[in-house]
Amino acid sequence: MTTTARAELRVDASRERLWHALTDPETISRYLFGSRVETDWREGSPILYRGEWDGRPYEDKGTILEIVPGDRLVTSYYSPLSGKPDEPASYQTVSYLLAEEGDGTLVTITQDGCADDAEAERLSGNWAAVLESLKRVVEEG
């Protein structure tokens, strides 16, 4: 059985502004731990995340599974830092969902395929930190 990590946060910005933040490599690096993202933002295309985590360089990867501008972005995701082999069973699915909430936007991130509740809790905490950083970047300009 697998569990899902989840984090959500309301941001005082339009869905369009948040969509830009989710798909603009320069903006992404400002809230996603300095990650440099490479993709063409098309369904079926590869997506790469490069950076440094705890002093170690990484290159995580996946595929864009679904992309609906202003609404949702769904990707597969694999990190060699997980210690798991690079095979289909080791990939997780990460979803970024945007929904209007009053005059702002509710951003929800989920990551499925967690090995257990402890991993889901750890990843939920990481995503909560990413969302707080995203909120700062988007709201402060």
Rank of each mutant, 00 (worst) to 15 (best):
S29G: 10
T39E: 02
M1V: 09
A115G: 11
L65I: 07
S29C: 09
S90A: 08
V11S: 00
D40G: 08
Y96H: 07
P25L: 08
E8M: 02
W41R: 08
Y77N: 07
R36V: 00
R36D: 00
E66L: 09
V107S: 00
A89F: 11
D116A: 10
S45W: 15
T4I: 08
Y77C: 04
P85I: 12
V138M: 01
E121V: 07
D71H: 10
A13C: 05
V130E: 08
L65A: 04
L18S: 00
E140M: 01
G51L: 05
Y49N: 11
L106F: 04
V68L: 06
A89L: 11
T108R: 01
E43T: 13
V138C: 03
L9A: 02
I28S: 10
D12A: 11
D116H: 12
S95F: 03
D40L: 10
A129P: 06
G141T: 13
R30P: 01
E43A: 12
E101T: 02
R30E: 00
W41P: 02
V138Q: 00
Y91I: 04
E140G: 01
L123R: 13
D116R: 15
V37P: 06
A99T: 04
P88F: 14
L48N: 11
T2G: 08
L9F: 03
A120W: 13
L9V: 11
S29V: 10
S45Y: 13
E38D: 05
W53T: 03
R36G: 01
M1E: 15
H20C: 05
D117K: 14
G55N: 06
L81F: 04
Y96M: 06
Y77L: 10
D103H: 13
L131N: 04
R56G: 06
L123P: 15
R17W: 02
E101C: 05
I109R: 00
T39H: 03
A118C: 14
T105K: 03
V68D: 01
D60V: 00
D103M: 14
S124N: 14
E101W: 03
R42H: 15
Y96F: 15
A99Y: 07
L81K: 13
L65M: 10
E121Q: 14
A128H: 08
L98D: 00
T93S: 04
G125S: 12
E140K: 00
A118T: 15
T93V: 12
T39Y: 05
T108W: 01
A120P: 14
H20G: 10
L65H: 06
P57G: 09
E66V: 13
C114V: 05
Y91E: 11
A13L: 03
L22M: 05
P46C: 06
P88V: 11
L65N: 09
L134R: 08
L97S: 03
T2R: 06
L134A: 02
G51F: 05
A89Q: 12
D103N: 14
D40V: 14
I28R: 13
P46N: 05
D86W: 02
Y78R: 11
L18N: 00
V94E: 09
G70L: 04
S35I: 01
A5Y: 15
P69C: 09
L65E: 12
I28A: 07
L48D: 13
R36C: 01
S76L: 01
